[in-house]
Design a protein around this nucleic acid. Structure first.
Lengths: 343, 343
DNA sequence: CGACCCGCTGGAAACGTTTCCGGATGGCGT
DNA sequence: ACGCCATCCGGAAACGTTTCCAGCGGGTCG
């Protein structure tokens, strides 16, 4: 249980050499082969393993990187976390997970807490980003990489994706498939993703020449299946003239599933009567039936890119900020088939 | 970007008092109100925030807890992580995520690496546990809580669940619903969960008086939908006499979805022709159609319990080991309805 | 043969914090 | 009025590591 761990000093004493030589020997820098062997043996015998807190204090480096998101349960963030871990771990960095909460203030506090130096860098994906957060990030004592919106600030490393363009791809795909009345099922507009996707849909509607009365928008109060189901009921209700939508673009796979549910409730088939697209390319959407056509925002790629940006920044603190953009990719599956089974 | 952070020494100098008093004032222990105010003002002015590495070195405490699992992507582990984070975070602990890989050796190495003291405790959920791992845990320099199988070792804190009993609950439920020929779709037998669930099924089959020829078992080579689909095809193939199973107990929600897929491929309806149960009560299973009857192993509860065990152990290192058992709970949903829609 | 340089070693400082300990001061009880 | 105790303060040590600096020896080149 509690074995008082051997310290470097004891190893030095045990090997009969100085502390300095012991440290050097164990790092292989500037020590004679004889010395190395001697120290190595002593260390082995005592079961020595270096204490990272002592090392951190001296080197001003913790070999830890924090990953902060609103909620860790979200599959998108899980994918990012996995990717980040995979990139950083081989370089000897540990990953600390943190939650920003869903208020912008909490995220700002978190960035400020970086001052206590428990971590060499931070990857943060803020749900709601404001100027205060950007300010705090700029004056943060360690590198911060933002994944998500680029905060409109050239000086901050960022990895983003063009989700507006992604929504556009979904709309174009539906139009090409012959759908004409396309509704948009969005999440809360006071979130960064919500705003971006709204922008994307509006632009796509304009680009495709949809008159306002040919598009309908409904905003769910959360990015969940339940909220999507509620909002989609309204979206799919017949218009005054009895006509209905023939396609729904959802801002999210979860919302999309809610839309499929609502469609079935209303006696409509998917994709027969209504085509549905999601976003995020989650396992959920892949496995669902019908499998969801979804716009991948490359969560893994973004996570990996963010991790690489961290490494680059730690390598060279003065390099100009980099802004990686991962292009969205539409993955066509059953939920938008032209002639689908009537399941 | 890089503002050289203020140290306690500078705060002391700036306040014109000693280092010791400064430290005490900031901790509110044994300092006069005047002193506290004076130091607080100085700290405020300099934007001081304490350095955790210095503190850790001195206090021999990192305020970090590691959570180690085979792969972070698994929804079950994500739930645990979330729960652990929720319990530990209010107590000032950060959570470090680590991966054990899928070999027992890697897990052992990980536990050994605890010697470098980057963390105050470890919560580990080993996929494959052997004696070497148990040994290493026993001699670990920090508290370790095992979640999963209890390692058959009374001296190690553990949080487990009786997944064998859970399988039993699923079988009983199916029998009560009138199902007679029940197949078992398991995952790899060289994993701890795989073995336990096999044991559970065998016991349940015996208890219900199923002759060996009335039960069929198939082992998928992974706990995934794809592997489940492959294995379930064999499981659902007609027997020599042309008869088929009327129920499948899957060791996992993912495998269960594979089974549903295979059933539909074979032209069978779920739950009409074949009832299917899963295990883990994942979001996936809840949202799937038909929604999956599933045995919840209480991932969140287990995570929370493990975190509480960590706190208790950190509080009192000498207390006897505790073994929390979270009872499995069957959640009945559409996939085992007596008369289902023929979807 | 002397000067210089290079490789190796040991002493000591430094990283930033907490806390032990001794000393000073003030108040209170006797 | 004196002693005692509680309260508060400052000096200094300690946690475990890395690294600067100086010294020492041996080899090489001029």
């Amino acid at each position: 249980m509690t074995s008082s761990r051997a310290t470097l000093i004891e190893v030095a004493r045990h090997a009969g050499v100085s502390l300095a030589s012991t440290s050097r020997a164990l790092h292989g820098t500037g020590a004679s082969p004889a010395m190395v062997e001697r120290v190595r043996a002593a260390a082995e015998e005592l079961g020595y393993s270096p204490d990272v807190t002592g090392r951190s204090l001296r080197m001003k480096k913790t070999f830890q990187v924090a990953f902060a998101v609103a909620d860790i349960g979200n599959p998108v963030y899980v994918e990012m976390l996995t990717a980040i871990h995979e990139v950083l771990s081989p370089h000897g960095y540990r990953v600390v997970v943190m939650t920003t909460g869903d208020t912008a203030g909490a995220a700002t506090d978190l960035v400020r807490s970086l001052g206590s130096g428990f971590v060499d860098a931070l990857v943060i994906s803020p749900l709601r980003a404001d100027d205060a957060l950007a300010d705090e990030i700029r004056r943060a004592p360690v590198p911060v990489v933002v994944v998500g919106r680029s905060l409109d600030d050239g000086a901050i490393d960022s990895v983003s994706t063009d989700s507006a363009d992604g929504i556009g791809q979904a709309v174009d795909h539906l139009v090409r498939s012959g759908r004409r009345r396309i509704g948009f099922l969005n999440g809360p507009l006071d979130t960064t993703p919500g705003r971006a996707r709204q922008r994307g849909f509006d632009a796509a509607a304009r680009a495709n020449g949809f008159p306002a009365e040919r598009t309908t928008v409904e905003v769910a109060d959360d990015f969940t299946v339940a909220a999507g189901l509620r909002a989609a009921r309204a979206l799919l209700a017949p218009a005054a003239d009895g006509s209905r939508l023939d396609a729904v673009v959802a801002a999210n796979d979860l919302l999309a599933i809610g839309a499929v549910r609502a469609a079935r409730e209303a006696g409509l088939t998917v994709p027969g009567d209504v085509a549905v697209t999601g976003m995020d390319d989650t396992e959920l959407g892949r496995v669902y039936e019908p499998s969801l056509t979804s716009v991948s925002l490359g969560s893994s790629e973004r996570g990996a890119a963010a991790a690489r940006a961290v490494l680059a920044r730690l390598e060279d603190g003065e390099a100009p900020a980099q802004h990686v953009v991962i292009g969205p990719r539409l993955l066509v599956r059953e939920s938008t088939a032209a002639e689908g089974s009537s399941r």
